[in-house]
Design a protein around this nucleic acid. Structure first.
Length: 435
RNA sequence: CGGGGUGUAGCUCAGUAUGGUUAGAGUACCUGGUUUGGGACCAGGGGGCCGAAGGUUCGAGUCCUUUCACCCCGACCA
């Protein structure tokens, strides 16, 4: 990407309504812009990040044997009437009418549609298990959207559904998905916890949430420092008052609190704030029964599918990465989510030596398949530096006045360290660094 | 959905109490020049039906009515 030609409208000031770091920096960095309450456009940089996350999610799911599909976003109301959710989901479902006055819903989730897709097409236990997913737009008409991409009305979500002939097999898949989700969040470079969620009638292990730990998280978690135990506070406190009191506390306050209970491993438990980015849930036969989706077992007897469901908030992850990785200056993308790994900053484009080295490096790295941008704008050093920090490229090669001495610098966005490098060795250093 | 608030230039905001020339600042943008290691400087310039509709008035950004949008607190939320 040649910055002089790129559509990356960065700004010095954020709109006053942005409060969270992710919201502020994604707007200021020219990643997204607001189109209405809870509606966001992704501009080029935002789109790249979104696609990178989507690609990692897809890769790991495909490896785990899940198959990608795509369900229509607009769905007939009848589908939701059959499952009863037309009533229970109420106003969160955005209803629209076509020219024939038929009613439709913008999909908030897709259990019904997926069951309908599989129903009568998979009819034997021999064809099970089956795990299907899609990464597609969802719309939930939240009463109060907020926090930018964290709680939008329209958002990108991966939703997966699995079908089984037995509870045991469903649990096996549930565990496989837990492991797969852990791989995904690890690859994204996130500090996260898997916690037991409020499981309702289904049972203790039936629902797990994946939380990215961050000050601004909306959920309060109890986590063990020694083992990997974690739980949403909703599951460990019985009284509403206790839960509400804890929820109301900030990240700083919550860290001060001690918790009487000890983990079953004997270690101390701590409170943390988390952003829910994934949720896996053992559904059982709730939807397959309601929609009469059956298969024949070994004895030729019709049974409803045992099901589980698996979700990842893909667009929410864009925000979560920044909530966990930012500083005063802006975004600090992880290596797998950065829109570009490397930025070449030509300090003064009127300086022929700087300019030609920058261009040469850019072309060579680009040719080698490295995600690289060059800031070739007619701007001053400080301006370009601030911009690079705001956007959050992991590395910036500064081709500037040190070039007189044959030196360029490699700036590390995370540590903010400047490492001097001989200009004739910089290509090798970079390719080494980016391995 | 309950309570509160805000709509004026791309963005951040003055101006509205007490109606009165041609509606302001900073920033961003355009032109020219200077500058070139931490969001530069000088000069010139473009950009607004003051959210919308209606009303009061000789006259409305300012007053009244209606409406729309957005934000905040809460309730709700795979």
């Amino acid at each position: 990407m040649r910055r002089s030609r790129a559509f990356v409208p960065t700004t010095k000031e954020a709109p006053s309504d942005a409060t969270l770091p992710s919201h502020k920096f994604l707007l200021r960095g020219g990643f997204i812009n607001s189109q209405g309450a809870g509606l966001y456009n992704f501009m080029p940089l935002g789109k790249i990040v979104l696609e990178k996350i989507r690609a990692i999610v897809k890769e790991e799911l495909d490896l785990a044997g899940s198959q990608e599909v795509q369900l229509s976003f607009v769905t007939p109301i009848g589908l939701w009437e059959r499952s009863g959710r037309s009533e229970t989901m109420g106003k969160e479902m955005l209803r629209i009418k076509d020219r024939h006055a038929s009613e439709f819903v913008l999909s908030p989730t897709n259990e019904e549609a997926m069951v309908e897709m599989v129903k009568n097409r998979v009819t034997s236990y021999k064809d099970l298990p089956l795990n299907l997913y899609q990464i597609n737009t969802k719309f939930r008409d939240e009463a109060r959207p907020r926090y930018g991409l964290m709680r939008g009305r329209e958002f990108l979500m991966k939703d997966g559904y699995s079908f089984h002939s037995s509870v045991e097999d469903m649990i096996r898949e549930f565990d496989l998905m837990e492991a797969t989700y852990k791989k995904i969040f690890t690859r994204l470079g996130l500090d996260f916890r898997v916690v037991a969620a409020d499981s309702g009638a289904i049972g203790g292990e039936g629902s797990k949430e994946f939380h990215v730990l961050a000050n601004s998280g909306e959920d309060t978690l109890v986590v063990c420092e020694a083992c990997d135990y974690g739980a949403n506070i909703e599951t460990i406190y019985e009284s509403e008052e206790e839960i509400d009191a804890l929820k109301a506390k900030s990240y700083e306050e919550i860290q001060e609190l001690s918790i009487e209970k000890r983990c079953s491993c004997g270690s101390e438990l701590h409170f943390k704030k988390g952003i829910e980015v994934g949720h896996i849930f053992q559904l059982g036969t709730k939807y397959s029964s309601a929609l009469e989706a059956h298969f024949n077992d070994e004895n030729g007897r019709a049974k409803p599918f045992e099901m589980a469901t698996f979700g990842i908030g893909v667009s929410r992850l864009v925000a979560a990465v920044i909530e966990q990785n930012h500083d005063e200056e802006g975004c600090v993308w992880t290596k797998s989510t950065a829109p570009y790994m490397l930025n070449i900053l030509v300090s003064n484009i009127k300086d022929d030596a700087q300019n030609s080295l920058g261009e040469e490096l850019y072309n060579r790295l680009k040719g080698a398949g490295i995600e690289v941008t060059i800031d070739d704008r007619k701007e001053r050093f400080g301006f370009k530096m601030k911009d690079a920090e705001l956007i959050g490229f992991p590395y910036t090669v500064i081709v500037g006045k040190e070039l007189e001495n044959g030196i360029v610098e490699i700036f590390d966005r995370k540590t903010k360290e400047n490492t001097p490098v001989n200009a004739d060795e910089v290509y090798e250093k970079i390719t080494e660094l980016l391995k």
